[in-house]
């Protein structure tokens, strides 16, 4: 049985050289060139990590769970790398770059003991690989978090409810209506109906690129929910091509629909008993005559 290498001793004896070699490695990889991270900052990170890796290499078995502090540090580091816009390989190279200097150091300490060096190298490689995988994983995770947050923001931004008049709301929909968005649209609309005690809601689908059977079903659901709350819905802004497609597909929207938002508003005003008066001409005309 070969003598196990004393990693803690190796690291403490060659600390500065390892750090220097590691930084050189990172520089060669181009991590610093982008200017996203400063030299001193990187060196600080290296020192902190080496201090944590030492005990990990010296004690932990290859398959034992990663030490809490080291894990936390790597997760935090990958997160900040992801936010700063580093690539995944640059992030994992931070860990992998430690390999060569470490192996160099152990070669110096155990000359002519090939079996010790080989054993220690294999051990260290396995551990560092796991750490590198951990960085990739957390890098990916924080990227995904960003994407999810953006999706949520887009969903909120794209479903505004506008008050057009006392008791008249408009929902200008833009983009594809999937079931998730329908849910958000429905909730927003119903909530606004309560807040403004609206009688009529106009759903304007000028910005909806395609209407298939599924989208139509979602629209109908929204209309049905509004009706249950005691508000009428008018659908407006169905484009000519879409109207044709819908008829060809056999999609039927059994709701009041108007060609444009203006027409829908005119109808809504008429429904709540308002008239638009042309102040230039003396006579007051009901809205329907002004169209």
């Amino acid at each position: 049985m070969a003598v196990a290498a004393d990693w803690a001793g190796v690291i403490s004896r060659h600390h500065d050289e390892i750090i220097k070699g590691w930084l050189q490695q990172l520089r060669d990889d181009g991590t610093l060139q982008t200017g996203r991270i400063k030299d001193a900052e990187l060196e600080g990170e290296c020192r902190r990590m080496l201090a944590l890796v030492g005990p990990e290499l010296a004690h932990g078995a290859a398959h034992s769970p990663l030490g809490g502090e080291l894990r936390d540090m790597l997760v935090a580091l990958s997160r900040s790398r992801a936010l700063q816009g580093f690539t995944p390989s640059e992030t994992s190279n931070f860990v992998l770059g430690l390999k060569l200097p470490l192996f160099g150091a152990i070669g110096v300490d155990y000359p002519d003991q090939a079996d010790v060096i080989a054993g220690a190298t294999i051990e260290a490689t396995r551990k560092l690989d796991r750490l590198a995988l951990l960085t990739i994983e957390s890098f990916q995770k924080s990227r995904e978090e960003v994407i999810i947050r953006q999706q949520r923001e887009i969903a909120e931004l794209s479903t505004p409810v506008v008050k057009l008049w006392d008791g008249i709301l408009a929902l200008p929909l833009i983009g594809t209506l999937d079931s998730e968005r329908t849910q958000v649209v429905m909730e927003n609309m119903l909530q606004s109906i309560v807040e403004h005690s609206a009688e009529i809601a106009i759903i304007d689908i000028t910005g909806v690129p395609t209407v298939d059977t599924l989208v139509a079903q979602h629209l109908l659901k929204t209309v049905a929910a509004a009706r249950l709350m005691g508000a009428d819905c008018i659908v407006s802004g169905i484009r000519p091509q879409i109207a044709q497609t819908m008829v060809h597909l056999g999609v039927e929207l059994n709701v009041i629909s108007k060609a444009s938002l203006a027409d829908a508003l005119a109808l809504a005003l008429q429904r709540i008993g308002k008239r638009v008066v042309d102040t230039a001409g003396a006579t007051a005309a009901p809205v329907e005559f002004l169209r």
């Binding site: 909730e187 119903l190 309560v194 659901k221 929910a225 009706r227 249950l228 709350m229």
Partner: peptide, 19 residues
């Protein structure tokens, strides 16, 4: 029927009951 809450309206529609 008056005063239905939004959540109730959504539930009924999802249940396929549009009354």
């Amino acid at each position: 029927v008056v005063g239905m809450r939004p959540a109730v309206a959504i539930t009924l529609v999802e249940l396929g009951l549009s009354l």
